[in-house]
Nucleic acid binder design. Structure first.
Lengths: 334, 334
DNA sequence: CCGGTTTCTGTAACCGGTTACAAACTGGAA
DNA sequence: TTCCAGTTTGTAACCGGTTACAGAAACCGG
């Protein structure tokens, strides 16, 4: 068996308390004793059991993060930003992907019992589960999801950026705009849609917006929307898509069909995934790593400082103009 | 405080042993007693402490996975494949990104103490650390890294796929090929390079290969290689890049400079990242999720079955032909 | 060399579960 | 009713650490 603290104590001729003090450098130990213990530990190749330590300290020194998926760059980047800060704060990171898992709620509950706090990305679990966890005292931070009760949250700005994006399109001559997304299911998308409408609402008559609702925000849906518009010979001046995948699918089909983008119709996305750069897609970049990093810091505050008043962070986004919206060569942002 | 097993025992008028048996359904308990305990547990909202349980069972019920980064899709997909299977096997997943971390080795050691087994992706830690962990009895599986001693490993096929890729280029009329990568630092890349050479070696005289070594496998390096070749007016028939990022950077600069791809020069990558599709890049797709899933299963065998003879899995890859290598319109693979 | 501090160390009681073993039931046959 | 085998349950000893508290040792000036 691997050696325990008692083996080391015996080997060094001291009590387990002294070994503990030496290993964790928590109290003054006479130098001679300390060296004796260290020598014994080295000889036995002793490493304190994290399990024993965790139980005694009643803390896991680990945080969890729940996300739907890592396929796109979005969540992957958030997770990375989170992990980097968590590691800095000397906490391990447990992950849980809810994608295609029917027992997601149970898995999240289980996970809550294995860490000191939890970050929840997007709509991975229901509001009621969040409420329930919060009520049971689980430290929680929501990311990319509107605040629930007094649970901390971190989000990227949507409304103002969408408005800026729409205003840019107006300045490029767009008069009728078609928004593609699912504002009903996603609060983020709803805010973007609202921002777009606000910009167009102010700009007087002659400017119209319409909404095409899609179920999945993926390339396939985007292509389907484009195909339908082509079939009906009903192209707007611009398609504003709820995310890049939609926009890429849409853009790909339009170009493949010989439609001039941005000449005939403009296309925009949201997120700035890597492929958006290659496709020349105008989009909105979210500070993804920063979202994760901020969540990690908020969670640490909750756990370490026992903070009780909730905090809600809103991080700024950045409009990235590319060739899909500008007939004149835009300054490329990489 | 949250209730403990003793609180429930008192509430139900039984011993803690009985509560334990009911909670874990490990032994026969009379139905009436069982219901009484369950009622008490429900009333107190009791959830067994994972810490206590883990210590008693001397297992973490968690596995770790170490990777350099999640930025590209490669590791993210592997991690997802891993997580999915681990969750199925009822194990939590701890993650550790070594990217830009100077104390990576210490972090990995620390992590080893917090889980029952570890999956290591790529060259995140040195061979000596792997050896050391293995010697200490840590259950290990290496992914995307050549076997070390008798440690399990899972890899994607490189040599044969590279050979197939090179043969395809030969059939497209390529006579001199330039390989871009770092075969010295990466065994995977070395195998690809060897496969390429093998194909060209067989094809008789008039066919040449050369190697351009780069330090970083990123877009910037790829662009630099392209720029250098253009400046020297020394373009090969094809650039075969060690990964997609390199190829995309290279391809982007060539096209921006007005070079006809594939007319004048062909370009290939490796990995099939999402952007490769938009750039029309011929590449080799690895079964990334499957790599992770296989690693999870091997690790579980090591832990649960106490398997001792090492296993080394080699998963097959798939050549994806796109417009960057074929003057005739290739059948697009999505 | 003494008493009073100050510093170091050991004892033992936790942390919250699991489980071997023995004791206490149970029901049915004798 | 008694006895025995088969169930159920309780006692207590773990798992491997941390830490409050008290006792021992070292240090210091007088």
């Amino acid at each position: 068996m691997t050696p325990t603290i008692r083996d080391v104590a015996k080997q060094a001729g001291v009590s387990i308390a002294t070994v503990s003090r030496v290993m964790r450098e928590s109290a003054d130990v006479r130098e001679a004793t300390r060296l004796r213990v260290l020598a014994a530990a080295a000889e036995l190749e002793y490493t304190p059991s994290q399990l024993g330590r965790q139980l005694a300290e009643r803390r896991h020194a680990a945080n969890g993060i729940v996300f739907p998926d890592l396929s796109g760059p979005y969540y992957a980047e958030v997770v990375l930003g989170y992990e980097a800060v968590a590691a800095e704060l000397r906490r391990s990171v447990l992950i849980l992907s809810t994608h295609g898992r029917s027992d997601a709620e149970a898995a999240v509950r289980e996970m809550a019992g294995r860490c000191d706090g939890l970050v929840i990305l997007g709509r991975t679990v229901s509001d009621s589960v969040v409420q329930h966890l919060a009520a049971r005292g689980t430290k929680l931070v929501l990311v990319a999801r509107p605040p629930i009760g007094s649970v901390d949250s971190v989000n990227a700005e949507n409304y103002a950026s969408a408005r800026t994006l729409a205003e840019h399109l107006l300045s490029e001559g767009v008069r009728n705009l078609r928004f593609v997304g699912d504002p009903v299911n996603s609060p983020d998308v709803a805010e973007r849609w609202a921002g777009v409408q606000a910009a167009f609402g102010r700009s007087g008559s002659g400017c119209t917006t319409e909404l095409v609702t899609v179920d999945e925000l993926d390339e396939e849906s985007g292509a389907a929307v484009a195909a339908a518009a082509l079939a009906a010979d009903d192209l707007p001046d611009a398609f504003v898509c709820a995310n890049d995948e939609l926009a890429l699918g849409l853009l790909g089909l339009l170009r493949a069909s010989g439609v001039d983008v941005p000449g005939t119709v403009m296309v925009t996305g949201w997120d700035d995934v890597m492929a958006a750069r290659y496709a020349g897609l105008t989009t909105v970049r979210q500070p993804m790593r920063e979202l994760g990093a901020t969540a990690a810091r908020l969670l640490d505050e909750l756990i370490v400082d026992q903070r009780t008043e909730p905090r809600h962070e809103l991080l700024q986004t950045e409009l990235v103009l590319r060739s899909s919206t500008s007939s004149t060569s835009p300054k490329e942002s990489t």
